[in-house]
């Protein structure tokens, strides 16, 4: 087992190198430079000033040299300094250790994605099982329709409608952002309540629009399992249907969900731009989008690298989870 893990971990290194190399070159292929925000068609900027800025950021060197120095820094876990005019270390932008947790971008995105993943699993799994055990009934059709409506609905549109209803008309929920402006003067439970109120709409929207995959996977995998012999045996020996489904069939049907969950680990830190923009949530998606638009190469690379590492780890985790859950795979 540990030999296998070690081998897999070592295999990740060349993959990761490849990912960063390709990303780095593609980003630099895109037209434009980080200095454009100052210099393009701004009559106050002379060509000398432009060159000075380019030199300051090391953009006058060939891309391969720039990649080399980036790599040299990254092996020491130094993500470099942002090219945007605040010149903060990239790590500082993603995870500002001096700020409270709730103001660190990576934490915010991670928290929201994790919560919505939990909600999705809590709703999608029972829904999928229910659909499978009641295949082709009206309930099955209603739940199928509902999850597909969620899947097809643009999240920003749903978000706007809900904001208008609950924020503007009913005044029940805040419209945007993560916390009220008086957050820091609230008591502990008050802060939690404030945060919860702000999170209801975003989590609902992201869960509702994300139900489809998990619930459909659960349904089809359950359908497959309940037709197998061991389920028939379990039924034949007179076990109650509830036990048959939840103890015997459910465990086996969960295998594809493990894969799915493992694959979404990488996605936990990548926020959705549209989603974060519409709710004004200061997460990774916003940061990434802003960095791409201003060609802030170090920040873009930093986020891509972290995402790549987590995706690779997620894959590994899924495989390990598989091995733990399924003795047949462990044996091989």
């Amino acid at each position: 087992m540990s030999a296998y893990l070690l081998k897999r971990l070592l295999e990740m290194i060349p993959t990761l190198l490849g990912i960063t190399l390709i990303s780095f070159f593609i980003i630099h292929l895109a037209p434009g430079k980080p200095t454009d925000i100052f210099t393009e068609l701004n009559p106050k900027i002379t060509p000398e000033a432009r060159e000075k800025l380019e030199k300051y950021y090391g953009l006058d060197k060939p891309v391969i040299v720039q990649y080399g120095s980036w790599l040299k820094r990254i092996v020491r876990l130094d993500f470099g300094e942002s090219f945007s005019s605040d010149h903060r270390p990239v790590m500082n932008k993603i995870w500002d250790a001096k700020k409270p947790l709730i103001e660190r971008r990576l934490f915010v995105t991670f928290m929201i994605n994790l919560l919505s993943m939990i909600v999705i699993l809590l709703v999608a799994l029972p829904l999928g099982i229910f659909s499978a055990t009641h295949q082709n009934t009206v309930y099955d059709k209603i739940s199928t329709t509902a999850v597909f409506i969620g899947f097809a609905m643009p999240s920003f549109w749903l978000a706007l409608l809900l904001m208008i209803l609950f924020g503007v008309h009913l005044h029940w929920l805040p419209i945007s952002q993560l916390k009220s402006m008086n957050y820091w003067s609230l008591s502990g439970p008050g802060q939690l309540w404030d945060l919860t109120r702000h999170l209801i709409l975003p989590i609902f929207v992201s869960a509702f629009t994300g139900l489809a995959a998990d619930s459909r996977f659960m349904r089809s995998s359950m359908l497959e399992v309940i037709r197998q012999d061991f389920v028939t045996v379990a039924r034949a020996k007179g076990l109650p249907e509830r036990l048959v489904i939840y103890r015997h069939a459910f465990r086996n049907a969960l295998l594809p969900i493990i894969t799915l969950a493992g694959l979404s680990v990488g996605g936990l830190v990548g926020g959705s731009v549209i989603f974060e923009n519409i709710f004004g949530i200061p997460g990774m998606g916003q940061l990434f989008y802003m960095s791409v638009m201003t060609r802030d190469y170090p920040t873009v690379m930093g986020i891509l690298t972290i995402g790549a590492i987590l995706t690779l780890l997620g894959n590994l985790l899924a495989d390990v989870g598989y091995m733990l859950a399924d003795p047949r795979i462990r044996a091989r």
């Binding site: 503007v168 005044h171 945007s176």
Partner: peptide
């Protein structure tokens, strides 16, 4: 004076109506 960052104009317009 509070400078509030809301990247989406439609959301900001709703905040205006809600008093935010």
């Amino acid at each position: 004076y509070i400078f509030r960052i809301i990247p989406d104009r439609a959301t900001m317009f709703l905040e205006l109506q809600a008093g935010g």
